[in-house]
């Protein structure tokens, strides 16, 4: 009983630590300019939707007051983010799951080296490969295209996806597909019909991480695009008015941009919880 209370208090404290800054960002998005920097900080304030309205070009005249010219570019770039991050996540999770299964179940020649090679692709600081990527992309005509960024983000996430999925695949008992094989399934059928459903919780977790990484990638989104395929993160960071950082509008952009990922994670949680049930059957 005491333990339960202590646990409850601990969870609340931890939640406060993780959520207070988030609350602060969201609150800033509803604050009028002077309230944003008020000393002491304002927890109660007269809210405004103006930052959201300017972000979506509903009230451009308000944005003009802060020195913004022309339309806010947020809506089209947000759409780009959805397309690019979404597709690249699906691809890297799919490829990662396949490879992880094969690594987990079969004897692969040079398995350890291959796995380490996959991991090492994540280690080079991105700053140095910026120019070579640009050079290749320009030669292939991939600059400022959706496909270009999708390919890139898929690659970036692959190492993570393979390694994490392998961790989950190793946990699924071999008896599962052996039973299926005896029942007359082919290997491929056994994988798709028996293993994949068992791996859903791992897939969900991996997808969440890949989505987050692709959703927020900044450096390559900036240098490899100029207009058509530019995603939202570089343009959120560039929201500035006459006096520098336009905190209210940046906060509004961040909040809107955060929502899809939170919603996705929330729905995927159900699958994460499946871990409980399949654990019981195991071994």
């Amino acid at each position: 009983m005491v333990w339960k209370m202590v646990k409850g208090i601990l969870i609340v404290l931890v939640l406060i630590f993780f959520l207070l800054p988030i609350y602060w960002i969201v609150a800033t998005s509803f604050k009028q300019w002077p309230d944003i920097f008020a000393i002491p900080p304002k927890f109660v304030f007269r809210g405004t939707f103006v930052h959201y309205l300017t972000l979506f070009n509903i009230r451009p005249e308000e944005a003009a007051k802060f020195g913004q010219v022309g339309k806010s570019l947020f809506p089209p770039r947000f759409l780009n983010s959805v397309v690019i991050a979404g597709i690249s996540t699906v691809l890297s999770v799919a490829l990662g799951t396949f490879s992880a299964y094969a690594f987990s179940r079969f004897r692969v020649r040079g398995e350890n080296d291959l796995l380490f090679f996959i991991l090492s692709t994540r280690m080079l600081p991105p700053i140095v490969v910026g120019i070579p990527f640009f050079v290749v992309y320009r030669a292939l005509g991939l600059i400022d295209t959706h496909i270009g960024l999708i390919l890139l983000y898929m690659t970036f996430n692959l190492s993570f996806s393979v390694w994490l999925m392998k961790g989950f695949m190793d946990e699924i008992p071999r008896e599962f597909e052996e039973a299926a094989l005896i029942d007359g399934y082919t290997r491929f059928e056994a994988f798709f019909k028996v293993i994949l459903p068992q791996a859903l919780s791992g897939i969900a977790a991996t997808a969440v991480f890949c989505l987050i990484a692709a959703w927020n990638e900044f450096f390559f989104a900036l240098i490899l695009t100029s207009e058509k395929a530019r995603t939202a993160p570089p343009s959120i960071a560039a929201i500035q008015g006459t006096s520098g950082i336009n905190w209210g509008q940046i906060a509004a952009g961040v909040t809107v941009f955060l929502l899809p990922v939170v919603v996705f994670t929330f729905f995927v949680r159900k699958y994460l919880a499946r871990g409980l049930t399949f654990g019981v059957i195991k071994r």
């Binding site: 939640l15 993780f18 959520l19 927020n216 900044f218 950082i245």
Partner: peptide
């Protein structure tokens, strides 16, 4: 439980640039 765990994940859903700015 589902809500608490989801909420707890929010910090890592932000881009480092945004996190740096607001912190």
């Amino acid at each position: 439980w589902g809500l608490v765990t989801t909420l707890m994940l929010i910090p890592m859903m932000l881009s480092p640039v945004v996190v740096g700015l607001f912190w």
